[in-house]
């Protein structure tokens, strides 16, 4: 065997990267869409969401460093960044003193995150393309 199965698991690793970055882009889109949402079913304004990534490891098989890619292990609410507070007495969600709490979403920050996610997506795609070319070469041997 010349390790063609490694090429396939590499392709799959790239796919997990593509899927994970897509999840991140979806979450960023949700954050931006809700940048002005002052009321949510859970109460209070919308909280910015963050995706947590974790490597997919082969530790169980006794190969501690071998990665099979990445997985978005959790989507969590950002509880550290404070809400924005504006004085808008006429707003339906204003409190007794006329203050409205706005989501802790910073649109500029979300946009830069979106750009990193897009670049990462493209990089995974480029790597996957490389695998196709390698597999193509391996197939040529059989011709």
């Amino acid at each position: 065997m010349s390790g063609i199965e490694k090429l396939f698991s590499g392709m799959r690793a790239s796919s997990t990267g593509l899927a994970a970055e897509r999840v991140r882009m979806d979450v960023i889109a949700e954050n931006i869409a809700n940048a002005q949402t002052t009321r949510t079913p859970e109460g209070g304004p919308y909280r910015r969401k963050i995706v947590r990534f974790e490597p997919l490891l082969l530790e169980a098989a006794g190969r501690p460093f071998e990665t099979l890619g990445v997985r978005p292990s959790a989507v969590e609410a950002d509880r550290l960044t404070p809400f924005g507070i504006l004085h808008e007495p006429g707003h339906p969600d204003a409190d007794a003193r006329g203050f409205v709490r706005y989501p802790n979403v910073n649109t500029v920050m979300e946009m830069t995150d979106l750009i990193t996610a897009m670049r990462a997506y493209e990089a995974n795609l480029a790597v996957q393309q490389g695998f196709f070319q390698m597999a193509e070469r391996a197939l040529q041997l059989a011709r």
């Binding site: 790239s14 990193t116 990462a120 790597v127």
Partner: peptide, 9 residues
């Protein structure tokens, strides 16, 4: 490929 997939981990 694993490294690239984990560039943001």
């Amino acid at each position: 490929a694993g490294n690239v997939a984990n560039q943001n981990t």
